[in-house]
Amino acid sequence: MDLDKLRMEDFLKGVKSAVGVAIGYVPIGMTYGLLAKTAGLTLFETVGMSLMVYAGASQFVAVNLIAMGLGPVQVVFTVFMVNFRHFLMSTSLREKIGAGHRFLESLYSFGVTDETFAVSSVEERELTPAFMFGLNVTAYLSWSVSSGAGFLLGRSLPYALKSSMSIALYALFIGLLVPSARKNKEVLLVVGIAGGLNSAFRPFLSSGWSIVLASLIAAASVTYLYRKFKGDGQQERGEEID
């Protein structure tokens, strides 16, 4: 096993990159904890769901469905539909990281979320398993602790702080995108089309599938158009984006 390649230095870089995500998870995790309590879950179940499922959108959906009185099978099925977009993210990440140790991959892939995906996919240095662990463990701890805190403390976070913190993950996404978009106009085009399509699909599709469809169409069409009109210059472009 190539565990000796797991360097502390890389792990700490991962931790550092996760700080924005960890801040952003506080208000959302707390809101989830409060909703879970309202839906009748115990503290054990509330935090247990964060520890075992670890997916914001599905946990919100699940708690809503439980509160509506839906059965467990329906809840599990809906959660599956909500989370299918992670398949797209892991496929893209695997391509960026390259094949590594099977055991390590099956551990850190548990930590793929919208946010950790966003951080690792714009990372310019080479991605290592140790980096992924640092990033994912930090985000995971923030999410789990915040959901427990939300259950216990409920509404005690001041309104102004809680509402202003709700921008955190969007600010994170923008902060991650801007450096890449400055260097490469193709990125700007992809982002614009994906965002536009997602806004158009949202009334007709669940948010999970809307994101999948919008991203696929935007990425495929821009890639196709660039190849067609800019010649086959993907080599140099590839290095630029990586």
């Binding site: 977009r85 797209l88 993210m89 496929t91 893209s92 391509e95 960026k96 919208d114 995906f117 966003a118 996919s121 714009v122 969007y170 996404f173 923008i174 991650l176 995108l177 890449s180 978009a181 193709e186 990125v187 992809v190 982002v191 614009g192 089309i193 994906a194 965002g195 536009g196 399509l197 997602n198 806004s199 949202r202 809307s210 994101i211 919008a214 991203s215 696929l216 935007a218 990425a219 495929a220 821009v222 890639t223 660039y226 190849r227 993907q234 472009r237 590839g238 984006i241 990586d242």
Partner: peptide, 18 residues
């Protein structure tokens, strides 16, 4: 591979808007 590269940014765009 190029599509997968662009998908990273596409997903970010879809996560931001709307």
């Amino acid at each position: 591979k190029d599509i997968l590269k662009n998908i990273r940014y596409a997903i970010l765009g879809a996560l931001i808007f709307p």
